[in-house]
Design a protein around this nucleic acid. Structure first.
Lengths: 155, 155
DNA sequence: CTCAATGGTTGAGTAGGTCAAGTATTCTCG
DNA sequence: CGAGAATACTTGACCTACTCAACCATTGAG
């Protein structure tokens, strides 16, 4: 932790270790993303759900056409058919015809599905203790940095 | 952007929008992770590689036993066999016996594999323009926040 | 030297993924 | 209106990824 004798950086009030390069940050981002999904998959697995099944449940905050799910999951529509089938067979979601366009099938959570999503989200949150420990300043900064580096898509 | 009449937050020099809640941050994190992998998968797909194949190539900075790959990818060893088989069939990696322990097979990139990894990494980087745009301060902050929220595993 | 532990592969079974083809419905426009 | 394009979804074929149990080869411990 001793102060290195580097040429003073342009900004920075308290001199710190050299700033990570963008490439290093990319690698850290890769690790963070991997870690996030590993955690998510583990939480889903406790309920005998795969990663994709968990993801889909989490997306279903409101009823949604199959097509919309395919777009959100960035996969083929035929893929969604299978996943919804399996979730449906377990009573976590159901399909309902859209009266205004009979081509469309709306997918929605059942009661049990809602409950499962609640459980998953709360367990996810409880595994991300690092998030709780951030102060207001840090939460602001994190939000800003994330949306600057990985501009979120509208949900 | 007008100043809201909230009770002044404890810290903060310039008053801003209300800080995101930990739960909101979790959702944003989910989106960021999804976006990162969507990008990664797209870059890999351009070279006819799956996400996992791309990941594995990227991990092979140095020769590594199958076992180590399984640990890094957090999957079953038998899984690695298949992936390495397919990458091997395309000439991107090869297996070599470890002389010091003949049970072990070291997996390593071929020349073509090295080149592919270089290409993937550089294209990934060029898609993450947001990273390049961060100043020293922000890079520091991002690194700190990421490792606080998602403590990285040693590579 | 025997036996347990370790590294890797194989085979069976499921899920996720794409693509092409097919059905049903809606939209467009002459 | 009515024919044809476009859209939503499903199905079937085919591959990758993933897990589990069983298996072989080698190593390590007693």
């Amino acid at each position: 932790m001793t102060r290195p004798k580097l040429p003073a950086p342009p900004s920075a009030s308290p001199p710190k270790a050299p700033a990570p390069t963008p490439v290093q940050l990319m690698d850290q981002l890769a690790q963070a993303a991997a870690l996030y999904y590993r955690n998510f998959a583990a939480v889903a697995a406790e309920r005998d759900l795969t990663l994709m099944q968990g993801k889909m449940l989490s997306l279903l905050r409101r009823p949604m056409p199959m097509r919309a799910l395919a777009d959100l999951l960035a996969c083929d529509a035929s893929n969604v058919t299978g996943i919804v089938d399996r979730l449906g067979a377990r009573g976590l979601v159901r399909r309902e015809a859209d009266p205004s366009d009979r081509r469309v099938k709306m997918v929605m959570l059942t009661e049990e599905g809602e409950e499962t999503v609640r459980q998953i989200r709360s367990e996810l949150m409880s595994n991300l203790t690092g998030l709780e420990s951030l102060g207001e300043e840090d939460r602001h900064a994190f939000q800003r940095l994330l949306s600057q580096v990985l501009p979120a898509v509208s949900t």
